[in-house]
């Protein structure tokens, strides 16, 4: 057990990390030789620097940061959907300089592709797989770009803003969950089961009704109507009674 004394580089209450950030901004200047344009750093909320980098220079800049400036710990990589474009954001820490840095790469929404930084930080492997999973950003040069958290046959990238969302005002129910009086109708269940099997994850916009439409827990109003007819003929119930209960629910 080694008891290590407390670190002395706690920021002062008045200046914060101002001096360290200024030193870092000076050290970042040589990146202009890689990218050809001067680095424009921006002070982020939380007292750390951030800058944007063109996607073709990303790996070279990252290698410079790791080898020359000692940014040895990739804290996170996150995709962001800004509607007109996608972003891949890297938060990098340096354990020797004791600093945090934010790198941002702007990508097009149509074909988001960026070079992988696995060769610089091996920890980027799973980060990039997750970003690919959630945003569909392709990381070229990644050794094993597969889905991370979702199934292989999942369609779509769920954290994109245009991905199908269930509106908050309507409580969604599982498609197999039906009313008890519907459950007695075997034929309806069969139809419903078939529909569930055919349905792929991430789809379903076509069948979805307007959020305000009362569906009584059924996504498919037509199937419900069919089941009503079926049940009334089987059990000999009058259709008028059936309609009355439906109106009551509405």
């Amino acid at each position: 057990m080694d008891l290590v004394p407390r670190s002395k580089n706690i920021p002062s209450a008045t200046t914060g990390y101002r001096d360290q950030n200024a030193a870092l901004a000076r050290d970042l200047a040589p990146i202009a030789q890689i990218t050809g344009t001067p680095v424009v750093t921006q002070l982020q909320k939380g007292d750390y620097l951030g800058f944007e980098v063109a996607r073709e220079h990303l790996v070279a800049v990252c290698r410079f940061l790791r080898d020359q400036l000692g940014f040895d710990l990739l804290s996170s990589n996150s995709g962001v959907d800004m509607l007109d474009h996608l972003e891949s954001v890297y938060h990098i820490r340096s354990t020797t300089r004791n600093q945090l840095l934010q790198l941002k790469v702007r990508l097009s929404s149509e074909s988001p592709e960026v070079d992988s930084v696995v060769s610089v930080w091996p920890t980027a492997n799973w980060f990039e797989r997750e970003t690919y999973d959630m945003y569909g950003i392709r990381f070229s040069g990644h050794p094993d770009l597969r889905r991370m958290l979702l199934d292989d046959d999942f369609e779509g990238h769920p954290l994109l803003k245009n991905f199908h969302q269930v509106p908050l005002t309507v409580k969604p129910r599982a498609t197999t969950q039906i009313d008890p009086n519907m459950a007695v109708s075997g034929q309806y269940q069969q139809q419903n089961m078939e529909r569930v099997v055919q349905k792929k994850l991430g789809q379903g916009q076509q069948e979805r009704l307007h959020p305000g439409t009362p569906t009584f827990g059924h996504a498919n109003e037509a199937a419900q109507r069919d089941a009503n007819v079926h049940e009334s003929t089987e059990s000999g119930q009058s259709t008028r009674d059936k309609n009355a209960t439906t109106d009551e629910k509405a």
Binding site: M1, D2, L3, V4, I10
Partner: peptide, 20 residues
């Protein structure tokens, strides 16, 4: 808590234990 202290950790020093 030591290297980028936040909230009350700026006032309360933390000892870290390191094993080699």
């Amino acid at each position: 808590r030591v290297n980028r202290p936040y909230m009350a950790y700026r006032e309360v020093p933390v000892n870290t234990y390191v094993r080699q």
